[in-house]
Design a protein around this nucleic acid. Sequence first.
DNA 1: GTCTATACCGTGATAGAC
DNA 2: GTCTATCACGGTATAGAC
Lengths: 190, 190
Amino acid sequence: MTDSAKRDRGKRERLVAGAGDLVHRQGVLGVTLAQVAEAAHVPPGNVYYYFKTKDDLLRAVVEARIGEVRAMLHSFDAHADPSARLKALAGRWVEMHDLVARYGCPLGTLSEELGRRDDGLDREAAQLMGLILDWAEAQFRRMNTADPRECAVGLLAGVQGGALLAHALRDPALLADHVRRLQEWIDSLV
Amino acid sequence: MTDSAKRDRGKRERLVAGAGDLVHRQGVLGVTLAQVAEAAHVPPGNVYYYFKTKDDLLRAVVEARIGEVRAMLHSFDAHADPSARLKALAGRWVEMHDLVARYGCPLGTLSEELGRRDDGLDREAAQLMGLILDWAEAQFRRMNTADPRECAVGLLAGVQGGALLAHALRDPALLADHVRRLQEWIDSLV
DNA sequence: GTCTATACCGTGATAGAC
DNA sequence: GTCTATCACGGTATAGAC
């Protein structure tokens, strides 16, 4: 890789990371490309050198988030016990409960916003929830629980709903307490 | 009331209703005042005669939604049994599962979007979830369940999370199935 | 009291300078 | 190959015509 390509990559990554952050805090439509440029320490207007359109940048943000989700799920596979894996998944939202109470779940708010579209990006964003759901279903299946798919939906819906309520009421403790109840529920299934 | 005041009221109501609808489908920032005017059959630009700013109109939308929530909860009080009331609450989301799968829960998406703000409208919007939560808690308390507040959070989080997943995956059946599981859970507490 | 024409700004996007 | 000056558009909001 040439030096210039490396710099490109660095700036591209900074742009995507900054855009992802801003989108989380302000929503897709609330973010301007000028803000993204500033956050990534790139000259304003220069964003178009790396992304043809704003939607292009957005697509990169979604793809990066999907990558993060895959990495997260993969990291949970270190646990031998499927119930421990599921509890670790839920625990992720406890770890970021302050951030969630202020700006909502980074995955949930993005899914909600892009779910209204009809240009392909909605399908892309659906993977954010779809991947987690499929992974959780596989874990419940290993636990030999009845209706593993519905259990997976119950767990992720619980987490996402808890995040939404914690955000609406701006109450981090609500999320933490609710997730602990979900973790107890997982234990009760073993 | 004078005739002109009546007309005002009619237009005002049409503007608020149209704006509420558009906000649900496109999000707060995705709606333009021109669209609102068109939806309400009011001359474009004329919106400012009824509302000083866009935020003013938005506040009216939130207040109207709060009124709808109050009316909905009040209507459930017709059931003598608190568990029947709670199941009727959950049933509301089954009734509108197609709409929710397409555009998200009208209350949930609004709460998410306004929860990011910090100008008072976030507090206003918090009532959308707060009112339901308090009402549900009172019903669980009458059922003598342990931890009525946490049960209320569990129910509303379940519904909202189910709505979010149904929206993300654009799958109305997911919401209907999940809500039925929540209703069975309510029955199991009696 | 009701509505229209318009000002003004910030946005995404582009053409071309360096 | 990288960045800057600028455009055209669409948005909110206002001043003033009817």
